[in-house]
Computed example of a mutant assay.
Amino acid sequence: MLKKFSKENVTLGFYVIYIFIAGICYELLPGDAKTPNVGVLLLWLFIPISIVYFTYHLIRHLFLNINHFTCLIIHGAVWISIYVVLTVFKK
């Protein structure tokens, strides 16, 4: 099924769907200071999941000679975007 989509579309789709689900869970499922809600948990899980996904593309790009440069750019752009959004909302 994923053969129909390019690797760039799959990477971008992963990030869009993951962030969308985390946002929906943050808004719909309540939490308090002692028990964080599911959206916060998904945001914390986003860090290791995205690092593993980035590493997967990096290894394929460097050692298997499959061009994943655009996917690596997408990973970087998403990380920078999330950092910027979180620092803006922090203030």
Score class of each variant (00 low, 15 high):
residue 21 I to S: 14
residue 22 A to M: 12
residue 76 G to Y: 07
residue 14 F to R: 10
residue 84 V to F: 07
residue 81 S to W: 03
residue 18 Y to R: 11
residue 57 H to K: 09
residue 16 V to E: 04
residue 5 F to R: 00
residue 37 N to W: 01
residue 19 I to C: 05
residue 4 K to M: 05
residue 16 V to P: 01
residue 85 V to E: 01
residue 42 L to K: 04
residue 86 L to Q: 11
residue 8 E to I: 12
residue 89 F to G: 14
residue 4 K to N: 04
residue 47 I to D: 00
residue 75 H to Q: 04
residue 21 I to K: 12
residue 3 K to C: 00
residue 46 F to W: 12
residue 70 T to R: 15
residue 64 L to M: 09
residue 66 I to E: 11
residue 36 P to V: 06
residue 60 R to L: 14
residue 31 G to E: 02
residue 62 L to V: 14
residue 79 W to F: 15
residue 91 K to G: 06
residue 40 V to L: 05
residue 72 L to V: 07
residue 60 R to F: 13
residue 21 I to M: 15
residue 83 Y to R: 07
residue 4 K to F: 04
residue 45 L to K: 08
residue 62 L to F: 10
residue 25 C to I: 09
residue 88 V to S: 09
residue 37 N to D: 04
residue 42 L to W: 03
residue 10 V to H: 00
residue 51 I to E: 13
residue 66 I to D: 10
residue 34 K to R: 07
residue 83 Y to C: 10
residue 73 I to R: 08
residue 88 V to K: 11
residue 90 K to V: 07
residue 33 A to M: 02
residue 67 N to C: 05
residue 80 I to S: 02
residue 63 F to R: 13
residue 27 E to Q: 15
residue 30 P to K: 12
residue 64 L to P: 04
residue 4 K to S: 05
residue 13 G to I: 06
residue 16 V to K: 04
residue 43 L to V: 05
residue 63 F to K: 14
residue 51 I to H: 09
residue 44 W to N: 06
residue 35 T to G: 04
residue 11 T to R: 00
residue 85 V to F: 07
residue 45 L to I: 08
residue 10 V to Y: 05
residue 71 C to F: 09
residue 86 L to F: 14
residue 91 K to P: 01
residue 73 I to Y: 05
residue 24 I to Y: 15
residue 37 N to E: 01
residue 6 S to L: 00
residue 81 S to K: 00
residue 45 L to D: 07
residue 26 Y to C: 03
residue 47 I to A: 03
residue 68 H to S: 06
residue 90 K to A: 10
residue 87 T to E: 15
residue 37 N to F: 04
residue 1 M to G: 05
residue 29 L to K: 05
residue 17 I to F: 14
residue 35 T to H: 08
residue 49 I to A: 15
residue 44 W to R: 07
residue 81 S to D: 01
residue 7 K to G: 02
residue 75 H to S: 01
residue 12 L to S: 10
residue 40 V to P: 00
residue 89 F to R: 15
